Simulated scan of single mutants.
Amino acid sequence: MYDYAINRRWSDQYLPEVKRIVGAQLLQAAPDDLDMKHATDLLTLDARDMRIAARIRRPGFADRYPYEFTIRSSVPSGAETELAKIVNGYADWMFYGHAAPDGSLASWWLIDLRAFRAALIRRAHGSLSSGEVWNRDGSSFRWFDIRSFPSQPPLVVAASAFPAAGLRRTP
């Protein structure tokens, strides 16, 4: 049976690292004029609040599925899932990380969910590589191949590293 509390406790151990990584993407150095005249050293990327989903995969998946990210698409209870919430417009970005056996993050992507939704809307005009995987507990995940998304708008805001040519790390 899908156990939200157990999975939440496990993934929450990574939140300090996720906050450090995402925070670095949201802040930028202020221009000299703002620094000199308005005591402003840092600016946020966007003036409105940013809602960020976070998903951490357990160790071992990064090597097996280096180009894929997954989003829970069903649970036995029939409750609304992450995929439904994202498709319905909730969350702006998704931090998608792979845990390493030592408890650190092995790799990660910061995905722009507005670009994700745009690609889903335009799916009829292109081919997104995706599929459904069922777990023993009756829940399922939809996987998406990051390489199959259009280059515009960019899906990836930032990443720890990309395993192949054609995918570039955003500074």
Rank of each mutant, 00 (worst) to 15 (best):
P153E: 08
Y67R: 07
N135H: 14
F95I: 08
Q25R: 11
G126E: 10
R117F: 09
T40M: 12
N7L: 12
F95W: 10
H38P: 01
P163M: 06
A124S: 15
N7Y: 07
D33I: 11
R58A: 15
S74W: 02
A79V: 00
I71C: 10
L43E: 05
R64C: 06
W109R: 14
L83C: 03
W134C: 06
S151R: 12
L42Q: 14
L26Q: 04
A79K: 12
V87T: 13
W109D: 10
L155E: 01
A47P: 10
L26R: 03
L155Q: 00
G23M: 04
T70K: 12
L128S: 01
D145W: 02
W93C: 02
L113M: 07
G78C: 09
M94T: 02
L34G: 04
R72P: 00
A164H: 09
A119H: 14
F61N: 03
G138F: 10
A164N: 09
W108D: 05
D32N: 08
G131P: 07
W109G: 00
L43K: 04
I86V: 15
W10G: 01
A30E: 08
F162C: 12
R168A: 14
R147K: 11
L155W: 01
R48H: 12
I71D: 00
N88A: 15
L27F: 11
R147D: 01
H98D: 15
H98R: 10
S151Q: 11
L26D: 02
G60S: 11
P153R: 06
S160T: 06
T40Y: 04
W134A: 14
R169F: 00
Y96L: 02
A39D: 13
I121F: 03
R147T: 10
L42F: 13
P76C: 03
I52P: 03
R136G: 14
S130Q: 15
P154L: 10
V133F: 05
A5V: 12
W143S: 13
M94L: 15
G138S: 12
S129L: 15
D92R: 07
W143Q: 07
L27E: 11
T70Q: 14
N7K: 11
T170L: 14
E82R: 00
I86E: 09
L155G: 00
R72F: 01
L83P: 00
P66M: 10
V18S: 04
I111P: 02
A91F: 15
Y90E: 15
